[in-house]
Design a protein around this nucleic acid. Sequence first.
DNA 1: GTGCAAATTTGACTTTTGTCGAGAGCCGTG
DNA 2: CACGGCTCTCGACAAAAGTCAAATTTGCAC
Lengths: 321, 321
Amino acid sequence: MAIRPAEQLIHKAAWLYYAHGLRQDEVASQLNISRASVAMYLRKARETGIVNISTSTQLFTDDVMARKVEDAFGLDAVWIAPENAYLADPSTDIAVLAASVFLELVKKGDRIGVAWGRTVYTIADIMSFADLQDVTVVQLCGNLGAPYSYRPDQCTMEIARRLNAKGLNFYAPLVLSTEELAKSLRAEPVIRDQLAGIAECDLALYSVGAVDADSHLVKCGALSPAEMEGLRSQGAAGVIAGQIIDARGEVLDCSYNRRVISAELASLRAIGKRLMVVQEDTKFEPLLSAIAGGLCTHLVIGAHMAGRLLQYAEAATKKAS
Amino acid sequence: MAIRPAEQLIHKAAWLYYAHGLRQDEVASQLNISRASVAMYLRKARETGIVNISTSTQLFTDDVMARKVEDAFGLDAVWIAPENAYLADPSTDIAVLAASVFLELVKKGDRIGVAWGRTVYTIADIMSFADLQDVTVVQLCGNLGAPYSYRPDQCTMEIARRLNAKGLNFYAPLVLSTEELAKSLRAEPVIRDQLAGIAECDLALYSVGAVDADSHLVKCGALSPAEMEGLRSQGAAGVIAGQIIDARGEVLDCSYNRRVISAELASLRAIGKRLMVVQEDTKFEPLLSAIAGGLCTHLVIGAHMAGRLLQYAEAATKKAS
DNA sequence: GTGCAAATTTGACTTTTGTCGAGAGCCGTG
DNA sequence: CACGGCTCTCGACAAAAGTCAAATTTGCAC
């Protein structure tokens, strides 16, 4: 990337202000520009990730509850957003925490898989900017053409933009009308390569969807409410990257799943750090399934959900003994 | 580390302010404290590394000159502080840059070797705070009892403090009066372990000293000006972690070196990232020696020094062809 | 060269933040 | 239980940073 003169100025201003600790007016006189310009440059510096301001998420993992959840479910790390203790809007709280955790987990040169959903998009939307080098963000599942603001490709691109990373989109629909077509499309070199590349990721970011009429799969028209209900009776327990999973966290054997273009669960499991973020309390069963299926090593949830998880784990232990 | 209630408050304030982007007065009303307290908590958050503000050092490596130096001397990365373009005090500029580079190179769980000198202490002094986990800072050489403000152990401890890391000091003098004593001391388990641990470091931070009467070795009384002059005529070209090196970057064969308790050069070379910082222009020859001896993979210097290095490299190439 | 649109820069104003001394609360000691 | 020393907190003021519309410069097509 060539260094444009404007960028040079932004960098100089940021350097003098943040690294040397000069005041804005001092920076202004150093660079022979007005202080107002300095203020503007500094904003740009923050927005481009030249300057990074990050808050430690330590305290959210240090939580006793977080430790217990880790132990009970064998997870690598758990962060718990203390509900209603902080903000009026609790779901934002989880997203903000998730974004920080995400940025803490990303390393230079990483390959990152990103799925789709309201949760993921919310995270992308509030995530602060960073200047990671050689980071690639890959889309984990096909696109949904629906006029939704948080389409899979948008989630991917927005996160890539925030990280100053390369975004690798998936130019295929999430779900096709026949199994044959899906099979042929998966065999296409472009698609095949993309799918194969998923297992090479270092970090995945996704949420889990519920199997009900509120699901995005229904809202975007991929499935009708009736079909969804049918799948549920067949054992559908959650939605991961556009695919239906059962209670064990395995792909449900159904026509819909065979028509989907998305990351194989085996590929997802091959990713070292699988960060799952769950905002809604209604996603308790889906989350349990995802954990059961080993689809999550790092977890960000709210205090209430954590409570339910622990309660469940305790009950299971008692029954076992 | 148990979480003290005060720390909890600091963390909450920092979280609301930096992660959620609330204003100080909003944070204050959320936490039911005065805005003045919030301001104070935020300062503490910055000072303890709960909040991290870092500026990308990208532009200093992107420099064409930096690339040329990298290529000419086979270094992994070079950062060049543009002299007098930025600040009144050019040496501060180098130290600020070095501190940023250092923080960029440190990773969680790292073991870091730190040597000693005015340069290193300056860096420690202006380095911003961070909250690295499981980081250990080890002292690379014995202590100098002299009443200097930048003793080896102080450099180590200060950096450890800033990083919230564990500091491992070296409880031995840098130089002893007889070779026998030095040898016995090196064989002591405590010392031996410390010396052995140096090769396990992931990152080293040091500068190189000049062989003249201004050297700290002279100022601290480890060597007399006359002795120093004598060493110079024996081929002394620089000082690394209290040891005298020759122009090839090898330990000079002399009594002084045999009386020193410090990291073996072989151990230093075993460290993956060796960050060398040179402020003074007078340290041209010492720097060349250090580079020749493979004691430096990452380099932070000023523009003037960079120019001299390139000039030298060019001349060497011409002579060779 | 000229004219026009877009981007950049600035001064003046408002809002937000930093600081400091005074006062309140706390704790061990005599 | 009164005392001094200590830390923590707050209100009020001063300093610094953010914002916006107007002015200026820049880039570009004609």
